[in-house]
Each structure stands twice: as C-alpha cells, then as structure tokens.
Design a protein around this nucleic acid. Sequence first.
DNA 1: AGAGGTTACGGGCAGCGTAAGGATC
DNA 2: GATCCTTACGCTGCCCGTAACCTCT
Lengths: 299, 299
Amino acid sequence: MIELRTLETFYWVAHLGGFRRAAEKLNTTQPAVSARIAQLEQAFDTRLIDRDKRHSALTPKGVELFAYAERMLALRTEMIMAVTSAGTLRGTVRLGLSETIVHTWLARLVKRLHELYPAITLEIAVDVSSNLRDALLAGELDVALLLGPVSAAKIKNLALCSYPMAWIASPDLPIGPGRLSLVDLAAWPIMTYSRVTRPYRDVTELFQRVEIPRPRFFANSSLASIVRMTLDGIGISAIPPAVIADELAAGRLRLLDCETALSPLVFTASYLDQPDNALAAIVALLAQTVASEEADQKS
Amino acid sequence: MIELRTLETFYWVAHLGGFRRAAEKLNTTQPAVSARIAQLEQAFDTRLIDRDKRHSALTPKGVELFAYAERMLALRTEMIMAVTSAGTLRGTVRLGLSETIVHTWLARLVKRLHELYPAITLEIAVDVSSNLRDALLAGELDVALLLGPVSAAKIKNLALCSYPMAWIASPDLPIGPGRLSLVDLAAWPIMTYSRVTRPYRDVTELFQRVEIPRPRFFANSSLASIVRMTLDGIGISAIPPAVIADELAAGRLRLLDCETALSPLVFTASYLDQPDNALAAIVALLAQTVASEEADQKS
DNA sequence: AGAGGTTACGGGCAGCGTAAGGATC
DNA sequence: GATCCTTACGCTGCCCGTAACCTCT
C-alpha cells in the first residue's frame, strides 16, 4: 500500500538528489529512506531512481511520479490548513527579519500569531536583508521579512509595506530651519543602516554624485543605536520615520526638510514555496495582513 | 501523521454512512476503523463525524475533509495508473455481462485483458441486464456489460456496441421465402430472451399491437439454448445475428425477411465511478476498445 | 579513504483482532 | 434486545535505528 510518508520520502530524495540528504530533511536514517524507496519501487514494479551517479537522478517513471508526489503533498498541505482548527496547528517557524520591522509592527505580528496559532513557536533572527536572503536560500530560515523581493526559483514573495526614508535629527541640532541641501546635511555625520544594505548604498551614492565634501558616514547595524545617537545629537540619520513614530510625536526628534529625497524601503515576506512549508505560508500571510493594517491605520 | 489509509477509511465511513460498513468494505474490523477515525480527529483536533444518529453524519469540518479525501484518493488512483507498469497491476474484477456478449467478443476481451494485465483476475457472472444492474448498484459487481445505460448517481456508462435484432430460423423450417408478416411468424413459437429483458418486452408488445393470434413465446434465459432450439427447428428466434455468425455462415440458420423490424440492442460498460475503482475503469475501457474493434471488423 | 547506498538484525510500538462494555432506539 | 460504536487488552508484524558491508571516485 502506498502511503503519504513514502511519497514524501520519494519527493525529498528526488528534490535533494540523494538518500542521505532526504534522511536528514526527514529526521530519520538513511536505511529507512532506502527501505521506503525500495517499497515504492516494488509497489510500482518500476525503477524510480538511478543510483549510479554521485547525484541520484530520476528515471522517466520517476519523473512522472515526482509530479504526482508534488501534487499529493501540496493537496495534503492545503487539506491540513483547511481542516485543522487554527488553534492547534503546531510547529516551529524560524523567522528572520530586518530590524526596521522590529521597530514597527513585529510586536503586533507576534501577538496576532499567538492569538491565532498558540501552538506555533517562533525563532526570531534579526539581521540585514542580504544575510537573511542567504539564510533563507540555505534553508536556515523558514520565512524572512526583508528588503525584497528575493529572486530565486521556488521563493515566493509577498509584498508587505513601503516605508519612505527621511532625514532625521534632534531638535537640538543647530541646522535649519528651512529647506536644506545635501551640502547642509554633509556638515554632520550621516547615520544609516550598515554597509551591506541597500539604504546605505543609496545614501552614499547620493553624496558621491554631487560636488561636495564627502560627509562622515556612521554605518550601523543596530537601528536602535542609530536612533539613540540621533537623539544624542551626534548627527543626522537616514531612516524611515515609521520606526521613530514615538520620538517624532513627542518632539524628541524632527524630520528635516531636505530638497533631496531618498527612495523608500520596500519590504516583502519571502519563503520557500514547498509542499511542506504550510507554517511559513501562514506566517508570511499573517505578516502581510498585519503590515497592511499598519498602513491603513497610518493613513 | 496523516496517511492515505486513514483518509481512505474516513472516505468510506462518510460514503457508506457507518463504521461497520466501512470496515467490511476495507476488509478489516470495526474497531480498527474506529481507531483510524479517532486518529484523524486527533490529528485535526476536530470532530469529523456525528455518531449520535443511526446513520453517522459528517460535521461541517468533516464535509470539508471529505472533499479533500476524495481528491486525494482520485489522485492516488490516477498516479497508480500512470506510473505502474501495466503488467503488474493486480487485483480481482467482478465482471457481470449479458450472455449476448459471451457469444460475441467476451473471449477477445478476456484474452486482451490477460495480455495487458496478466495479474488481474476476473470473476465473471452471466445474467440478464436487470439483474446485472441491481448487482452493480448493490456493489456485488465492479463492472457490468449490459443493455444500458444504467441511470444512477455515480455510475459511469461507456457505449460499447449496438446489435440489430433479427428473426432467425432453421433452413428446414417450412416458412418463406419472400417477405414475411408478423402473422406468418406467429404460426411458430417465438423464442427470445427471458421475460425480464427489454428484447422480450419489445417482441411481445409487437404481437400485442396487431390483430393477430398471439403466438407462443418461449422466453429463455439461456441464449445458447435458444440457438439450440432454433437449430432444431422448434420455432423462430428473435436474437441479434451477431451471436450466430458461425451458424449463418455455415447455412445452419438463416435470417428471415420480415416486414417488421426490431429495435437494436445497445450495450454499455457500466461501473461505479469511485476513487478506488481503477481496475473497473480499466476493464470498461478495454471492453470499449474490443467492442469497437469488433464493429470495425464487421464493416 | 570517504561518500553514498544496501544488507543484516534486534527491538519498539503502532495498529490489528478478539472480546467485553456502553449508548441509543 | 438490537444495532452501532467505544474501550480494553494481548499480540503480531512493520518499520525503525545501529552497524557492518559493498561500490564507486
């Protein structure tokens, strides 16, 4: 009798190109995988996998079966999501995200997730988008909320939110009022995200184009410390106002009126679109919901 | 973990409306079915079946799951038929058919089936179409080749062949030559299929309409004995010439030229269109192929 | 020698069947 | 009491994991 477990094993052997790798993925031993594939080949009375080479390849029948296995597993996922009462869907999701999200609506996402799916455990990793992207592709993360989209096969990207960037300073900083030029800004240290990020590249390019003294850049991987330093009057920061809503409302920070605007930060929820990745899809969809609620609320 | 066997069990409990009946269908015990349903309900953390009433009914979640189970099992069937090498598809098919088929192309069907699927076992039951219809609906047959179509939910009918009926007699019978009327025929016993068949009703109605002495009818459930008696000059038979091709060719029987024609016998292959019924579908399709080859050959 | 798959073998546990126990009509 | 499902319980057999073996590069 053919069972879903057997098909799932075949799927991963085919997808990962090896018994050993499939065994790892399925948290079992390699002989167990061997046995399941053997059982499947016996059931169909057909050889499904060529083991000759270093990288096991599918036979024609194997290719055909692979398509069915994929449909079967996708259907199972859909079924589980449709029938399971949300409250008891369990598992662990490794969620990676940019610090910007932490300072905007992460708390809301976590709260909503625990309300809807109390049995889902989150492992949260905060990092810059480029590292998140690598971790996602390496299978070390299930979902990433980052400056997207991630362009790779099998990666699904959901649009989350777009945050305008702005020049921010302490009210105590002796600059302005009135419309400022880049030259005015360049008198101060410019603080923004770390060197490997797109906002950093945007900001530095901006100052390279024009004929002005190059300002000092304080690239900082910690958004919190950028805010802290801005509050302390160290310089001007280029960050989205969304992350410092409180400080702006309380007058502890102010938006500078500058003639040069920055391109906004566009975030996506990205995850591997694979048949066993239902939890990732749930978290990504919920992130999208929360992000759009956030956007509605602001407007 | 949800397995196909569990879903199949759920499918049959839902479909047959009871644990006991599902157990029978699946060749297992009723507690085993209980356990599988319990496991499923635990996996989804939802009640799927209301057992209160005499006829177990599905909960809303159960209805939802049923749709998925159906798709899942259909997909499994499709997969098995696509991937399995034909020669090793095994199982038993209970085939019911009219005796007319026995005398035309049954042998060819059986031969072809054993060539293509040597591991499929046939259980053949010959009966009149009305009984075949009942047996099919009662689940006692997997496929029936009969005077169709069978109009019932979930029954799939494939057109097979159409046999004209004719009046047949021994060359020794002192009747004709020349065009005959029903009155001419009525001088002899009229032999045809048994009382519960459509051809019998057709023939008797024919003689009731006209103002002629009602002939003696020899209704006979055995086509072979109708032929035997016709050969022996007992009377005139109303049967398809197709079943006595040999006797006609050898001149041991002859077609009578009668002004009144009979409506032809239209056969269908009928089977229950259910997700586990792949073998039935195979046999029905093969019967269709063989029947159409037969028709091509004659023309 | 190391990576990858198969074979051999003992042990655990899921799931089966028998049999007894409610519940509902 | 008849029907239908659940619970209890011992047992079987499947499948797993450890370990040794084989076969390539």
